[in-house]
């Protein structure tokens, strides 16, 4: 676990420094200049933070769903602790992804919120997380809470493909990959990023993923201890 911790700190520090400090140039020379993308300019740097955070948000939800499914099979409370720990982190990351995206939208598209398909999706994910925790707080027994929230996470997860694959093709949007995009519509984009930006971007992707894993293990340990303490008092 130590390696995860150290690596995530190193990678995120590198991304924070490189993503902000490397200057833009019209004709980039060598490794230490990023190309200027017309219309994006300095705002393009947000891609190093917004996209990896959004990716980790989805990852956290899928992990939460997976442990929910595991709980239904094994009925061991440990799986539920993992599921809820991941959901809590996912909620936090989801808020971060919404805020970074909303700020970017304000300065690039003119308003904080446009109901573009991806914005709708992240809004729904926020609602799902909110509903998930509302449900958990309304159930008294540990067992029912774990069981029903796991089922809800899976049912909510069933709608995810509609948001990722169907909605962006039906409704015109502003994000790349939306209906009417010149580079073709669909969730899989052709990756057109300068090589040095790509290094920073993937460092960030790996860095945030490791950061998530690190926090997840911490939260699971804390949740286990809390559960243990609650057990001893009851």
């Amino acid at each position: 676990m130590r390696i995860v911790k150290v690596l995530s700190i190193i990678l995120i520090t590198f991304v924070l420094i490189a993503g902000i400090a490397i200057p833009l140039a019209p004709a980039p020379q060598g490794l230490f200049e990023f190309p200027i993308i017309p219309g994006l300019e300095d705002k393009a740097r947000n891609i190093f933070y917004h996209v990896p955070i959004a990716w980790t948000t989805v990852l956290a939800f899928l992990v939460s769903m997976w442990y929910g499914y595991r709980y239904l099979r094994t009925r061991s409370i440990d799986d539920d602790l993992k599921s809820v720990s991941s959901a809590g982190l996912g909620f936090m990351l989801c808020i971060l992804a919404t805020v970074t995206g909303s700020l970017w939208a304000k300065f690039n598209w003119g308003s904080f919120w446009n109901w573009d398909p991806r914005e709708t999706s992240i809004f729904v994910l926020l609602l799902i997380y909110g509903a998930y925790f509302a449900l958990r707080s309304a159930l008294a027994s540990d067992e029912a809470r774990a069981r029903l929230s796991a089922v809800y996470a899976i049912i909510a997860g069933l709608t995810v493909p509609f948001f990722i694959f169907v909605l962006p093709r039906m409704v015109a949007g502003l994000h790349p990959g939306a209906k009417g995009d010149v580079d073709g519509s669909g969730p899989v984009l052709e990756f057109k990023m300068a090589p040095n930006m790509r290094v920073v971007f993937f460092s960030s992707l790996i860095g945030f993923t490791l950061f998530y894993i690190w926090l997840l293990t911490l939260r699971i340990r804390a949740a286990r201890l809390e559960h243990h303490v609650a057990d001893q008092h009851s």
Binding site: T120, V124, L127, I128, G130, A131, A134, L135, A138, L139, A140, A144, L148, V151, Y152, I155, A156, L158, T159, F162, F163, V166, L167, M170, V171
Partner: peptide, 30 residues
């Protein structure tokens, strides 16, 4: 299915639309 989930909870009335809405959004939009 959401009704089955919330039947066991203690704040059913308010919880029902809260839980159903995110799940129903793809349907409602379509």
């Amino acid at each position: 299915i959401i009704a089955a989930i919330i039947a066991r909870a203690n704040t059913r009335g308010t919880l029902y639309p809260v839980l159903s809405f995110p799940v129903l959004i793809p349907l409602l939009m379509t």
